[in-house]
Structure formats: structure tokens, C-alpha cells
Design a protein around this nucleic acid. Structure first.
Lengths: 166, 166
DNA sequence: GTTAGTGCAAACCTTTTGCAGCTCT
DNA sequence: AGAGCTGCAAAAGGTTTGCACTAAC
């Protein structure tokens, strides 16, 4: 399983597998979602109430430096914190709906192609790559349009009136 | 000029063009680089010592919401702050060397192709998209390898020894 | 004249650091 | 045994907010 991979990788590097780290790694790997440090801390605290928020940050930093997790911000939809995911999966882009917050993942060869092109074009050695996209999901596009109309009806001022004067 | 575009766009939306905003817009547009809020503040203060840092943040936020600038983090090479650039240019990826900090921009059709694919695949309406890549530029790859060797020579411990024992 | 925008101070949120004590190997 | 890790408290860095005053339209 992926779990073994990360823990094995740490062991090989001479990094200690403490109780706290095992717990955090478990949570990161088993969570299907993208967790931020605070969510991870909350979940971990339920299993180990003594665990400190600082340990979460230190563990995430270590995993990031060791290239075992990737750091995302998901277009800052939920704020300025960072989200984390394991690197087990194939490269993918994150597609974030700015209205409902849903995050979809895009796999597929245009990403690999882009990556190869960048490496070739600059002779660059890529260690980490992120593509994040914000907009409206198919479900929210109509709702969003309706919301805009309503807003315009409620406040029939602001933008357009001034243009008519010219 | 691009300057006119942003200022005109703001005017149309009924957003006031204050002295401070004109100054900040000028700096953003004329700067060839990616500026963070603090750099922008420092530069602005030289022309208007009274200008407050908060105004910089508020202006950037407004421009971001109005989709007149894009927000980047350049793989957090320089810290956790955000960088900004105008949206005048064609879509491009940012390629950041994690050793020397150089930022290159990748244009080219793989990006457009990726964008179209995401829109088609999910029926998604993209408002903003970012691709950021971290690694070593052609110039730093050799230097980096040498640094690693030296580090291994200086501290001949850590990782590999343990593996030999098996 | 109104309303939006500014400056100032203070708060806020996320993340990092210093240090004493604990624990994994 | 001893380096590495944790918890706690405190600080730091980046960004936002409340409020009274000012300026753009």
C-alpha cells in the first residue's frame, strides 16, 4: 500500500517514525480529500489529544521537503492556508469551482505533454509541478448567471448607468 | 498602452481612480517582474511617502477580484507571500528554479490545449488558471549535483549507511 | 453632497522558532 | 546513550478589519 511507501521511504532516509508521524501519515494517506494543516490537526487530535499543532506543521514541512506530499492552495477558495496530498497518484491538475468549492482532478496526457515541453524547452529539471484552475463547474454556471441578474435587479446602479450618459 | 486598459476598465465599472491607485497600477504595469505586496509598497512609497501598506493590499485584492491581475506564489521560493502580474499577456506557465530563484515563462500551445481539454472534459468555465513548476534550471543542475556530493563528503552518514546493513 | 477610498492602529490567521524534556533506534 | 523529535509558549510574517477623516465623482 501507499502507506508503506512513505513510511519505508522515511526509514531509509534515517527519519524516525514516531507515534505522531505514523498517525499523521495514516490520516493523510487515507483521506480522499485535500486536507489543510488545521483539518489534519483536528483529526489527529481525536486519536491523540496530546498531539500539538506544531508537530503537524513540522511533519508537513518534512514531507514536502522530502517530496512525499505536494502542497496546493486550490486557488485560495477556502482562505490562505495550504492543502496537502500524497504524491502517489499520477500527475493531475486541480479544478476548483469558485462558487461551490468542489474540486475535481484532471488527469490526461495534455499535462504530461506540457511537462515534457517545459523540460525540453528550457533544459529544465522538474521536481514539482502544479496546475490549478478556478472557474465555475457545469452545475454552477447557470446558478451563477441567475445570481448576477438578481443582484443587478436589486441594485440597478453601479456600473452601467454612467456609460449611458456619454 | 496596457495602462489605459486597466484604468479604463476600472472607470467603466464605476471604480474611482484615486492618486494611489494610479500610482500602484503604473508600477504593476511597468514592472517587468513579479512583484509581491511588500515590494510594490516599497516602490510606491518612494513616489508617495504617505501611501499606506493597507492600500496596497486593498488595491491588489480589488484588481484580483476584477480579474485584472493574477496572483502567483512561484512555488514559495521566496516565502509565503503572493506575487502579482497583469493579465495583459497571453497565458503562460511559471518555471521557477529552486536553487537560483530565476523565473522563466513558458508560452506555447500545450497550455491552451490543456485549458481547452479541461473545459471540455468537465463542462467547466475557466476564469483563472495557473501552472507553476519548480526544479532546477539548466544552469543549476550541475552545480546542484556538485553541492550534493560535497554535502555527502562532509557528512558521510545519514541516508545510505543504514541500507548497507541489510 | 455622497459614497467610495484612505490612513492608522489593532487584530487576525497561518506558520515558524527557541528551548526544555521526552523517545525512538 | 544520544541524536532526533515533541510540546509549549511566544514570535513572526503576511494580510485583513474597524473607524474616523478625506477626496473623487
Amino acid at each position: 500500500m501507499a502507506g508503506q511507501d512513505i513510511q519505508g521511504s522515511l526509514k531509509k532516509r534515517g527519519i524516525r517514525l514516531t507515534r505522531q508521524r505514523r498517525l499523521l501519515l495514516d490520516l493523510i494517506e487515507k483521506s480522499g480529500q485535500h486536507l489543510d494543516a488545521e483539518q489534519l490537526y483536528e483529526q489527529a487530535k481525536q486519536k491523540d489529544p496530546k498531539l500539538n499543532r506544531v508537530t503537524v506543521y513540522r511533519t508537513l514541512k518534512m514531507l514536502k521537503q522530502g517530496q512525499l506530499v505536494d502542497e496546493l492552495d486550490l486557488m485560495h477558495y477556502g482562505g490562505d492556508q495550504h492543502y496537502y496530498e500524497t504524491r502517489m497518484k499520477q500527475a493531475h491538475a486541480h479544478v476548483v469551482c469558485l462558487r461551490c468549492g468542489k474540486v475535481e482532478e484532471f488527469y490526461g496526457e495534455p499535462l504530461q505533454r506540457l511537462r515534457r515541453q517545459i523540460e525540453m524547452h528550457f533544459g529544465f529539471q522538474i521536481l514539482v509541478a502544479r496546475t490549478e484552475v478556478g472557474g465555475y463547474c457545469s452545475n454552477c454556471q447557470g446558478l451563477r448567471a441567475r445570481e448576477m441578474e438578481e443582484a443587478a435587479a436589486a441594485a440597478p446602479l453601479a456600473v452601467t448607468p454612467k456609460e449611458r450618459r456619454n
